[in-house]
Computed example of a mutant assay.
Amino acid sequence: MDKLHTTLPRKYFWPLPAHSTTSQTPRRVGLEIEFAEISVDDAAELVRALWGGEIRPQGPRDTLVQGGRFGDVKIELDIALKTKWAEDIAAKALGDLVPVEIVTAPLMQSDLPHAQTLTNALRKAGAKGSRAALAYSFGLHLNPELPAPDGSGLVAVARAYALLEDWLRASDPIDPARNIIPFVDRWPTALVDALVAGRDWSVDDLAISYARLAPSRQYGLDLLPALEHLRPALLADVPDTQLKGGRPTFHYRLADARVDEHDWSIAYEWNRWVLIERVATTPDLMDALASDWTGHHASLISTRGDWVAQVESRLQRYPDLLRD
């Protein structure tokens, strides 16, 4: 039997599931795409050629393509230090190790194929991705809007991710260089345990526990922007340096940006995220995975590999997860 992740579509995008009767408005998603060996100016011209708009430089390392078909698009060298002079020195010293990043406006799900067209154009223009060089550590960040303005569905998605994270990492490992930089750490086991036990958690419960157990922006799924948007008063345990402003989105950083590889696609990475949300909206599967985790974590001899195999086996029993 094929591993489940190998059967995920790579040429079309699954829709996000509805989490409740309050989550029927089509949800948008912002994308951040990192790559090397194409300059900010050349990438901006490529975006303008595909999507229209006017190129408006914003500074020495970033520009804006304004007024195009899919909203404003920012293109920048992805480096953020305390001072501009330090950024200048680092950018010159590190060269292509500092990625160029394209940051889109929130896109309708129906417009995501145009993002795939963009990455195809980047590849043809010579852009290099995560695995093109040993020290590259480039990511594709997905910023899907929350299922509902009141936070409905957030806890379920957090629980699903907690239960699936090891499987996601093992089924298609991220580039080794990304494991030695911030922003893609695993969630702490204590947080996973709390989420598994917190079957009836509210958003308040999630905010309080996340602030206590994972008060950092460093994770493959960063919930601080969403929680700062929804429950800022409950994040007192989070250092100010980690609070960059709230917004009603998830911030998922686990995906590599393999823009130069012909068999890679944004659709594939997007569908991995949608799979998380499909699990979150399948209560009996969530209960089964939570029970599996409890037994796994209580065992003195189970390994992370054992857990990954358990998750794979459990997911294989739910063929509807792969429905188009």
Rank of each mutant, 00 (worst) to 15 (best):
residue 5 H to C: 08
residue 15 P to V: 08
residue 16 L to K: 06
residue 17 P to H: 10
residue 21 T to S: 14
residue 22 T to C: 10
residue 23 S to Y: 08
residue 25 T to P: 07
residue 25 T to K: 14
residue 26 P to R: 06
residue 28 R to W: 04
residue 29 V to K: 00
residue 32 E to N: 06
residue 34 E to Y: 03
residue 39 S to G: 13
residue 39 S to D: 05
residue 41 D to I: 11
residue 45 E to P: 00
residue 47 V to K: 06
residue 47 V to E: 05
residue 49 A to C: 10
residue 49 A to Q: 15
residue 52 G to Q: 10
residue 52 G to H: 01
residue 53 G to E: 09
residue 55 I to V: 14
residue 56 R to G: 02
residue 56 R to T: 13
residue 57 P to K: 05
residue 63 T to M: 07
residue 65 V to R: 01
residue 65 V to K: 02
residue 66 Q to R: 15
residue 67 G to F: 07
residue 70 F to R: 05
residue 78 D to I: 00
residue 80 A to G: 07
residue 84 K to F: 09
residue 85 W to C: 00
residue 86 A to D: 13
residue 87 E to T: 00
residue 89 I to M: 00
residue 91 A to M: 11
residue 92 K to I: 12
residue 92 K to Y: 09
residue 93 A to C: 10
residue 93 A to R: 11
residue 94 L to K: 02
residue 97 L to P: 01
residue 100 V to L: 02
residue 100 V to Y: 02
residue 102 I to L: 14
residue 103 V to C: 12
residue 103 V to W: 05
residue 105 A to R: 03
residue 109 Q to A: 14
residue 111 D to A: 15
residue 112 L to F: 05
residue 112 L to N: 04
residue 113 P to R: 02
residue 116 Q to M: 08
residue 119 T to E: 03
residue 124 K to Y: 09
residue 124 K to F: 09
residue 125 A to C: 06
residue 125 A to E: 08
residue 127 A to V: 08
residue 129 G to Y: 01
residue 130 S to A: 15
residue 130 S to H: 08
residue 133 A to D: 12
residue 134 L to C: 06
residue 138 F to G: 04
residue 138 F to V: 07
residue 139 G to K: 04
residue 142 L to V: 03
residue 148 A to W: 10
residue 148 A to I: 05
residue 150 D to M: 06
residue 151 G to K: 00
residue 152 S to Q: 13
residue 152 S to C: 07
residue 153 G to W: 01
residue 160 A to F: 02
residue 163 L to C: 07
residue 164 L to K: 00
residue 165 E to Y: 01
residue 165 E to I: 04
residue 174 I to S: 12
residue 175 D to T: 15
residue 177 A to R: 05
residue 177 A to Q: 04
residue 178 R to W: 09
residue 179 N to A: 12
residue 180 I to V: 15
residue 185 D to C: 11
residue 188 P to G: 06
residue 191 L to M: 15
residue 191 L to A: 07
residue 195 L to D: 02
residue 196 V to M: 07
residue 197 A to G: 13
residue 197 A to L: 13
residue 202 S to L: 11
residue 203 V to T: 14
residue 204 D to N: 13
residue 205 D to V: 06
residue 205 D to S: 13
residue 209 S to Q: 14
residue 212 R to Y: 10
residue 212 R to Q: 14
residue 214 A to M: 09
residue 222 D to F: 09
residue 225 P to K: 03
residue 228 E to P: 01
residue 228 E to Y: 05
residue 228 E to L: 10
residue 236 A to S: 14
residue 236 A to E: 14
residue 242 Q to F: 06
residue 243 L to M: 11
residue 244 K to Q: 14
residue 244 K to L: 15
residue 247 R to H: 01
residue 247 R to W: 06
residue 250 F to M: 10
residue 256 D to T: 08
residue 256 D to W: 07
residue 263 D to W: 09
residue 266 I to P: 04
residue 268 Y to T: 08
residue 270 W to Y: 00
residue 271 N to R: 08
residue 271 N to F: 04
residue 272 R to M: 09
residue 275 L to H: 05
residue 275 L to N: 05
residue 279 V to N: 00
residue 279 V to H: 01
residue 285 L to P: 01
residue 286 M to I: 14
residue 288 A to E: 15
residue 289 L to K: 02
residue 290 A to W: 03
residue 290 A to N: 03
residue 292 D to C: 09
residue 294 T to W: 05
residue 295 G to K: 13
residue 295 G to F: 07
residue 297 H to R: 15
residue 301 I to Y: 09
residue 310 Q to P: 00
residue 310 Q to V: 11
residue 313 S to C: 11
residue 315 L to C: 06
residue 318 Y to S: 12
residue 318 Y to K: 08
residue 321 L to Y: 06
residue 324 D to T: 12
residue 324 D to H: 12
